[in-house]
């Protein structure tokens, strides 16, 4: 099966700094590829390469087997890359449905088709398991997890084949984190979208991931599918194994 998105030897340099070196991984539709790494591992740079903010200096990106080059986030979006950033790009005082369609509103003649917009918003949110009673309510009435779902539903509705989730659980409370994981699972069950799930939470990665890629200091430390990687090893890989053992020894003294 051709990967929905595949990276081959991607590198990115900023002056003399090697931000990413020789990154290769793939994501398939109906699967969650967990991208793990500590702060500074290069996760953000990698997302920016995928979503068209940066252009890689080496290597290539293939979508459904065809090499692509993005000059802007708009081109990446047109090619089917939907990125949900941590801050979600939502308008706090605007209604749920207006947020959903912001920048891509449905108009009937001169005027917005508000009924259609509400209807679609309700349907798309329902597909991800969230029942929006009134899409005309301000977004402030949604919980953090529901807002995350809205951003995901929006990306899917506007044609994402690859859904990039940038630390979707890190800013949320425990209960809402689970809500988001449930949403991610709903998207996986659609079987037509490849999900790239960026996180530094090994527990969440273990719960939801089908493939794992570990980044450390701009390089791939380890990768593999769920069956290939020993789940108990996840935490060690995350914390950089040896360093954790070192700290443990230090604390015991």
């Amino acid at each position: 099966m051709t990967a929905t998105i595949q990276l081959k030897g991607v590198s990115k340099f900023f002056g003399n700094i090697i931000a990413l070196k020789d990154i290769s991984f793939e994501a398939h539709k109906g699967e969650v590829t967990a991208l793990l790494g500590d702060n500074g591992a290069g996760k953000s740079t990698l997302i920016k390469c995928l979503s068209g903010v940066h252009t890689p200096d080496e290597g290539e990106i293939l979508i459904e087997g065809k090499p692509v080059k993005f000059g802007s986030p708009r081109q990446a979006a047109a090619a089917g890359i939907g990125t949900v950033y941590q801050d979600l790009a939502l308008q706090p005082l605007m209604s749920v449905s207006r947020n959903f369609f912001l920048g891509r509103e449905i108009s009937k003649g001169l005027f917005l088709d508000l009924n259609k917009m509400s209807e679609v918003t309700r349907q798309e949110m329902a597909k991800l398991g969230i029942d929006v009673a009134d899409p005309n309510q301000p977004i402030g009435t949604l919980s953090g997890g529901q807002r995350q779902t809205l951003a995901i539903a929006r990306a899917i509705y506007f044609g994402a084949k690859v859904l990039i989730l940038d630390e979707p659980t890190s800013a949320l409370g425990q209960k809402q984190q689970l809500e988001v994981l449930r949403t991610v699972n709903e998207v996986r069950n659609r079987n037509d979208i490849a999900i790239i799930f960026i996180t530094h939470n090994d527990l969440h990665a273990r719960l939801i991931g089908d493939r794992f890629t570990f980044l450390n200091r701009g390089r791939i430390l380890a990768d593999g599918t769920k069956s290939e990687i020993d789940p108990d090893n996840l935490r060690n890989l995350m914390a950089g194994g040896a360093e954790l053992a070192e700290l443990e020894a230090e604390l015991k003294n």
Binding site: P73, R74, Y85, D87, L88, A89, L90, Q91, P92, L93, M94, R98, L102, G103, R104, E105, S107, L110, F111, L112, L114
Partner: peptide
């Protein structure tokens, strides 16, 4: 009732977020 009006609110609400969605 128009997209231009929607954009006016978005420009003042969170300009960065508005730019991110075009």
């Amino acid at each position: 009732r128009t997209r231009y009006g929607n954009w006016i609110y978005a420009a003042g609400g969170d300009a960065q977020a508005a730019r991110a969605v075009g």
